[in-house]
Design a protein around this nucleic acid. Sequence first.
DNA 1: TTGTTTAAATTAAACGTTTGTTTAATTTGT
DNA 2: ACAAATTAAACAAACGTTTAATTTAAACAA
Lengths: 213, 213
Amino acid sequence: MFNFASHMGINEKQLKILQVTERLFSEHGFDGTSVRTIAKQAQVNIAMISYYFGSKEKLLESLLYYRSQGFKAQLKEVLAKDISYLQKIDEMVAVMIERVHKNRRIYKILHFESTTNTRRSIINDHLIRKKETYKIIESFINDGQKVGVFSKDVNIKLISSTILGTYFNFYYNHNYFKIIHGWDPDTSIDHFVKNELTQHIQITIKALLTYEN
Amino acid sequence: MFNFASHMGINEKQLKILQVTERLFSEHGFDGTSVRTIAKQAQVNIAMISYYFGSKEKLLESLLYYRSQGFKAQLKEVLAKDISYLQKIDEMVAVMIERVHKNRRIYKILHFESTTNTRRSIINDHLIRKKETYKIIESFINDGQKVGVFSKDVNIKLISSTILGTYFNFYYNHNYFKIIHGWDPDTSIDHFVKNELTQHIQITIKALLTYEN
DNA sequence: TTGTTTAAATTAAACGTTTGTTTAATTTGT
DNA sequence: ACAAATTAAACAAACGTTTAATTTAAACAA
């Protein structure tokens, strides 16, 4: 059996399996996706999945590992720039939304699995990365409060919930957005996220951090 | 077979099945829950589920119907009160959060199913109710803008995404909140939602709606 | 209060599929 | 020639649903 975590060299077939798995897991969930479907769509034999990844659970594990690199560094870079605090908010939000939008399918799997007791062991790595990210944002906002740019009655713990939550509530309801707001079929979701949605969140966070009761 | 939608009188056994189903579907998903598990936990024979509800899919349908009453009226009532616009925001947010927190398990099922193409027909009713709710909030904010209390560069479409999204991002990560922020095991989630979380969202929305660029 | 009738409720067992995984044989590339 | 890659076939287990038989409960007549 191939140990995905130790090696990082993956061949075309493994990559194809991971890509198909990501799409199917996010569309139909872990239990709603059969290894036969994965194998068929990735155009490999069923046994190749056990052969390469060991089991269906370890396939999910490999997928999460495969999709988890470099966000921390990107965030630090933005916050170290020589720009104003409010401009940093804009850039931080933009980076975060770009990130989750790109990996939205993975996050959907994580959201689903994290409130589930059946496969909790798989997502422990994600918890560590999440905590690191939080600490960076927390100390940035603390700085802004000391300088007097940011308001002090703000629940820092919940800021990233507002940023990411707004995005995911849009994502989980984007089919409704299409109908309710009468989007024409050509309106690109990517375009809406990059412009309208990101801007809305940027304004929201800036408003929140400068709001005095 | 019993037609749940037409009759609304449900006996103890049907109620028990629905309650168990809600918990299991939200914890393990539709595909991750077997009718055998439902039957066992509800302490009824497997065949009773087909007998009362027809099928597993129709059981979900009945569950959604069972949990969908009265939100629209509650919202209208709050917005008709003789209080300031900002106070209405506070009350509206409180009502919305109380509502989704109470029905969080149902919403999790909806979030999961709405980005899935396999059972889309089931959630059409929910779309209609969602649109009605949006229209009420939209006209309330339009009023506030005309009076000059609310800022005009606000993306109204996305306001409920921020309100509900913040809540759900908390809910989907509450196990992480426990560990990351070192909650003691006795800290009640209900208490945190009713106080800290609701207050955070109230401040956020008031800040957003009174923010001038 | 009785016994009888009738439909609803309940049950165990069986149905045919589909599930994830393994086996053992074969092909491929070096 | 030899190890890695690939395959078809088989495995037991679990799935949702149906069947056919039995029990329960209520209605009714005597």
